[in-house]
Design a protein around this nucleic acid. Structure first.
Lengths: 215, 215
DNA sequence: TTGCGAAGTCAGCGGCACTAACTTATGTAA
DNA sequence: TTACATAAGTTAGTGCCGCTGACTTCGCAA
């Protein structure tokens, strides 16, 4: 009994090069291992250079193995993408907790969480928000994306109410999101680099937030 | 003599399916034909689904032929990318001409030209502004991108001066660019769709422009 | 007229996504 | 304890891709 369950424990069986050791026929948890490999490879090289074959080498299995766990290459990317949205959602929620709801600081900290996420996980960010129409049709993005924006609208509504102003919080939130998203894209795609080297993106976002919030 | 020079005239030799007819050994202007095929295919299917082999079929040559004219696949994409920047630059310049320099309308029309370019050529826009670090290192993007922003800074400087205000036109222009770029990305990547279906992007951009310009 | 070089073709390499058929290991039920 | 169904691997192979080297065709200039 105890003997049998031991073969399930495959985690940590790694060689020096970080790839999985091939010392038993069954992997243990290939599914999770491939997802993690995909996440790491996308992080390192970008989704457009990610190959399933690389992930297989990383996990120490043949290139046919993934198809016991996933429909195709796209499905693994979808899962990685989905986990990215969960992380982003958690990050922005954390920002509100720290700053206190309905404050300018909360809104600015949410923006900062967004740009920080983008700059620490640029390739994942591109995967999440890029075209990739195949991903989008899966509907994965919708729920998570809507959730993130809903948080922001909520905070903006609270803030506007406190200020005693009569703007549409949805409209204001969309403008904030648009700006922060633009800043994230231009930052991670290095489009600011030549044009405004050493730009302080956080300051830019905070400045624009004040413009848009009218304060 | 007249006979010989005729074989140079290959333009317009197209079959019903739009592909080049194969009625002579030399193509005539394969280089330009491949660039145009690449532009069309990127437009239709996106750079990530573009294959050189497709472009060759379109031009009616074998898959080895492009390498007489281009280093590799990347080089054709670079050229298409560069022409895209030239188009964007011309479009924004035209906007200023129409609206008159230094006006709010000029600035807003430049923004509109940007989002219109993005939405009529979404795949080209992504190619131009996406990571694609291989493209970026080529330096093609730098000159063109800097040129576009320089126009904007100029107009913003004129506008601010007229208003008699003492802001840094560079800083203001960067905010405007950031917003317009964000709006373009979210629009073409269909990220607005679920969250704000039927959103009037032009109105959003104009509203934000007023916020940022403080008028 | 000829010959050289530009611009094609052909055949082939390695890598990728994916599949069909086969093999191994594992948990369950007799 | 053993037999077996099945989950989870492998092997071998397909077709497409980017790219290369060796060969061929053609246009131009001497």
């Amino acid at each position: 009994m105890a003997e049998a369950s031991q073969s399930r424990v495959a985690a940590g069986a790694r060689a020096d090069d970080g790839t999985e050791r091939k010392d038993r026929y069954h992997h243990g948890d290939l599914r999770e291992s491939l997802i993690e490999a995909t996440r790491a490879l996308v992080h390192a090289k970008g989704a457009e250079h990610f190959t399933l074959a690389d992930a297989c080498r990383f996990a120490g299995v043949t290139t046919a193995a993934p198809y016991k766990h996933f429909r195709d290459k796209q499905e693994i990317l979808e899962i990685v993408c989905q986990r990215g949205f969960e992380k982003l959602k958690a990050d922005t929620a954390h920002a509100v907790e720290v700053a206190g709801p309905g404050t300018l600081e909360a809104i600015q900290l949410m923006g900062r969480a967004y740009t920080t996420f983008a700059s620490t996980e640029p390739n994942l960010f591109r995967l999440m928000f890029g075209q990739n129409s195949d991903l989008k049709t899966a509907g994965i993005v919708d729920e998570a994306g809507t959730g993130c924006l809903a948080y922001l609208i909520e905070q903006v509504a609270l803030f506007i109410e406190k200020q005693g102003r009569a703007e549409d919080p949805r409209h204001v939130a969309l403008k904030l999101w648009t700006f922060v998203h633009g800043a994230s894209c231009l930052l991670i795609d290095h489009d600011y680099d030549k044009v405004a080297p050493g730009l302080d993106v956080e300051a830019l976002v905070n400045s624009a937030s004040r413009d848009i919030l009218g304060s």
